[in-house]
Amino acid sequence: KEILIVQPYMKHPLQNRWTLWFYKNDKNKPWQANLRLVTKFDTVEDFWALYNHIQLASRLMSGCDYAVFKDGIEPMWEDNRNKCGGRWLITLSKQQRMLELDQYWLETLLCLIGEAFDDYSNDICGAVINVRAKGDKIAIWTCDTENEEAVLHIGKTYKERLGLPMKVVIGYQAHADTATKSGLGVKNKFVV
């Protein structure tokens, strides 16, 4: 008799469980009502099953966001883990939507789920992509603007992972400043 040995497939666990959020801009509702928790994942395989299933960011309607945050952290300034923090912000031109937006967003996700920031990965809260007619934005959110060592390490590593040229400068803004910004724009607490 032939014995068939079936090897169970073991999924690869991630260091953290992550939540995917989706935001669709419906001006008739308060913004909180437009924010939806889509699903959670904590293995490499489940990440890909989700990523391959959902719409590419470049194909979302203007006014939509994706956000991927550690389980238990909501993608808003007010969350306890965000309110003292800030974000490394990547602003893209309209032309970059078709060329680089999806590639940058995937690389951002791979940095998150792969724990690409060494000991400072604990400072990571999540990442947001805003699809907007006036120019798309991608940002990595960290929990503490005062933890300069962590913020700078995350910024340098992130810039490298995106393959941004040295001459391109990215800025880190505290959420508290972004929340109270006047029309003039938000000052950068750090740049790399």
Binding site: H12, P13, L14, Q15, V44, E45, F47, W48, A49, Y51, N52, E107, L110, I113, G114, E115, A116, D118, S121, R161
Partner: peptide, 20 residues
């Protein structure tokens, strides 16, 4: 021990079930 995965390792799994 921290579960760290580099991008090449992660990318290797994108279509793993399709190839099974």
């Amino acid at each position: 021990d921290k579960k760290k995965y580099d991008r090449e390792f992660l990318l290797g799994f994108q279509f793993i079930f399709a190839s099974m």
